[in-house]
Every structure is written in structure tokens, then in C-alpha cells.
Amino acid sequence: LLYFRLSGIEVNPDSVGIGGNQKRSCQHRNSTKSEPDDNYERLEVKQLLQINPTDEYGFEQWHNAMRMVARLPGGIPSSFRRKVSLWLTLADRRLQQRQIDWQQTYDKCFSEHHNPEDEELGIQIVKDLHRTGCSLFASERRDNQALLKQVLLAYARFNQTVGYCQGFNMIAAIVLEVMEGNVQHALKVMIYLIEHVLPESYFTNNLRGLSVDMVVFRDLMHVKLPELAGHLYRLQQESYEPTLGIYYEPPLINAFTMQWFLTLFATCLPKPTVMRIWDLILVEGNEILLRTGLVIWNSLSDRIMAVKTADEFYSIMDVLTRELIEFGPA
């Protein structure tokens, strides 16, 4: 698994597509309709719409085209998410492969009838709704919160083993926003993300999948960012307790990387950047989590190299994480 996750990963920001060009492209997306790449975008949409992603050959062609667009300096134009229904097409495809009877699933997941096992789940979901700060969608209006609740409860009913994990609310809020409030579509994308895109047990079994990724990621840091990884390791080593043979300080990057991975960066980067990364995660797969993590740590590297203790590291990260939310990786 380790080897598999490590193979072929580059730290070059361009390989993730969120490097230097990213800020410029965010501005494009936020600006008015007269985007400089408008023509190109229209052309691409037209071409891509002509590919029929419903049959085997058409889907492969379409998927490859999307992969390429995602790697262009500007990334996937935000309008693609709607016009080409990028996320939904990928989700639909996989649900078809699983031969899921969607009508039946829909009836079960969105049933008005409350099962006794919904009770406790529902209470926790409702409690967390207003604590979903990353997306405007969650806090904007009350009926939006109702939609968010529907999606979260629907997913918990769909997969009772996973149920509801704190952090899903942040993920579902973004999915709902891109799906423009369509709960059915949002559920499909949630299923696709959690069960097919992210590694197994990311949100279950005490987050075992995430723990594996953290170990893999630390190894990856040593390979791709050896100077920084070495520095952080030395700071952690100061907490070595020889009589017990343990480090009482957890690996320093854990506290931050964990949160990035669990929320797919939803809570730590500016929204346009998050969208861009999510496109890549959905199109390319979960390896993008590791790549993005590398890019972020690399961007913070100079300032972290200057700290001399673990405590100084945590103090400066307090500042750096705030800057990340506002400006994204430098």
C-alpha cells in the first residue's frame, strides 16, 4: 500500500495544478462574465458535450479530456461543474457500475418516515449543522441547513457502517453548493467521494485509512521535501523519552495534515482553490490529497525552517494556517 501510494508523486506545484497560476485563475473565476478565456471555455464545453459519457468508450474519452483540462494552468472552468455536470457524471457512472437501484435507494434514503436508529444520528447532525463554517451554503439560510441535514441523514442511511462522521457536514456543504441545492445529486456525489474516491476506512474504524495516509505522507515528505521533513523530525526527536522508548510529541505535521485530509482542504484554503483541488480529486483520485499536502508544506517551508523548537513550530503554524485560509499556498 505504501509503495502504491508513493509511486509517481511529484512535489512540483504544477503537477497538482494549484501552483503559481492558481491565484490568477481564481481571479478569473471570481471576475465578471467577460473572462479572457471565455472563448476557449465555450469551445471546450461544446467539444466535451459532444462526447457521450454514457457508453464505455465515450466515458473513457470524456474522462481523459477532463483529466487534461484539469491540468491546464487555469484548471477546470467553474462552469464545467454545472454545464458538463462533471462531479455528477463521475458519480452516476460509478453507481451504475455498482448496479445500484437508484429509485429504491432514493426512496429509502430520503424517506419521510423516521426510523428509530435515525434518532441519535439526527440529533448529532442537527447539532453540527450550524458549526459548518467553511461554506456559505451552510450558514446562509435556514432552508439551506435543512437541505444539508437531508443529505447527511440520507448518506448515513445509505451506509450505516460509516454513518455520520464530523467533518461530513463541511464536505456535504460544498457538494450541495456545486449541485445547486439538489439533494439527490449531492447524495450521489457524497457516495462517490466517500466510497470510491477516498481510501477505505477514511471515516470509520477509528479513521484507520486516514492514519495510514498520515504515515505514507510522512514518508513522502522525507522523499520529496527531505530538508523540511528532517528538520521537523529533529524537533520531534527532542521529545524522545529513552526510558519508555517513545516520543511523547506526535509527529509535528499530524495536527494540520489530518484536518486537511479529513475535510479535503475545505477548511484550510480559499474557496476557489478548494474547488480546484476537489475537481482534481474527483477526476484523478485520492492521490491528489497527498500531492496538495506536499505543495502546502513546501510553500511554508522557509518559515518553518527558521523555528528551533516544537513549540515555536506550533506557534508559527497558528499564523501560517490563518494565512493559508486567506491567501492560499504562496
Binding site: D128, R131, Q166, N169, A255, M258, T267, Y314, S315, M317
Partner: peptide, 26 residues
């Protein structure tokens, strides 16, 4: 009043004084 969920762990620090000694709480 509306505090975002804590995912994993979060960090805070403050300096206090006890018996004229500066103590940093991590």
C-alpha cells in the same frame, strides 16, 4: 456562539504569570 467543529485537534497558546514566573500554556 457559532464555533466551527473541531476536526482532529487544534492548538492554542497563552502566557500567564504564576508567582512572578512567566508560564506559557500550550
Amino acid at each position: 456562539p457559532i464555533h466551527d467543529l473541531t476536526i482532529g485537534v487544534e492548538f492554542g497558546a497563552r502566557m500567564i504569570t504564576i508567582q512572578n514566573k512567566q508560564i506559557k500554556l500550550q
